[in-house]
Nucleic acid binder design. Structure first.
Lengths: 103, 103
DNA sequence: ACTATCCGTTAGAAATCACTTACGGTTAGT
DNA sequence: ACTAACCGTAAGTGATTTCTAACGGATAGT
């Protein structure tokens, strides 16, 4: 679970990113999330499934409602990917700039 | 150019991520990139277009070849997005953990 | 028990995406 | 000029995605 494909694909959808960012503000139930979005509740449910399989959110049953909250695993994996390339990417860009200034 | 949608959507495709990660190792022409991938050259060309519009790569004409290289704008935007939520996400998760231990 | 609320899943439709093939334009070399 | 190499774009196709509507299961309250 939570490979890079799932991770980036999950965050690629705008609605899904909106759901995720909303959950960072605090846990919420499916209905609450759907109320603030222009899509139906089942759609939100499906988005949450994708986010969950990517390791970005987790859920907990609370009565008849399911409370979703942030799962740090996903963001951690994303940060790890970014950190892996951040330094090298900047170095590569610098090298590119230098080559550009020698005719 | 380079809004979050384009950014995440660009990195969502595995082939596109492969192209991008290859370019971090150093600039390369389209044909070179295609040679190391299981897709055709036009496909790589289309992927590069998406990456370019997302601000992740840039190109420079060099003879008949177009040399693509990393553009730090894209990764910078990604890092900015991540930094914006990183602290809050961890805090939200911590708060969630505490609520879990009080029945 | 009965009812209302909340939710996940399924099925199907419309839209989007990634790919190949074919084509045309530009540059370097002879 | 002519040729060869390199590349972007257009057109078309099959697969994937996102959505809604409909259904069924589980829980809380009366």
């Amino acid at each position: 679970m939570a490979n890079q494909n799932q991770l980036f694909a999950a965050l690629a959808d705008p609605t899904r990113r909106q759901v995720f960012e909303r959950l960072i503000a605090g846990p919420a139930a499916v209905g609450e999330l759907a109320r603030g979005l222009p899509v139906s509740r089942p759609a939100v449910s499906q988005h949450l499934k994708v986010l969950k399989e990517a390791g970005l959110v987790a859920d907990r049953a609370h009565g008849t409602r399911r409370i979703y909250h942030i799962d740090p695993h996903g963001l951690g994996a994303l940060r790890a990917w970014l950190d892996q390339f951040w330094g090298n990417a900047l170095a590569a860009f610098q090298a590119e700039l230098e080559k550009e200034q020698e005719p």
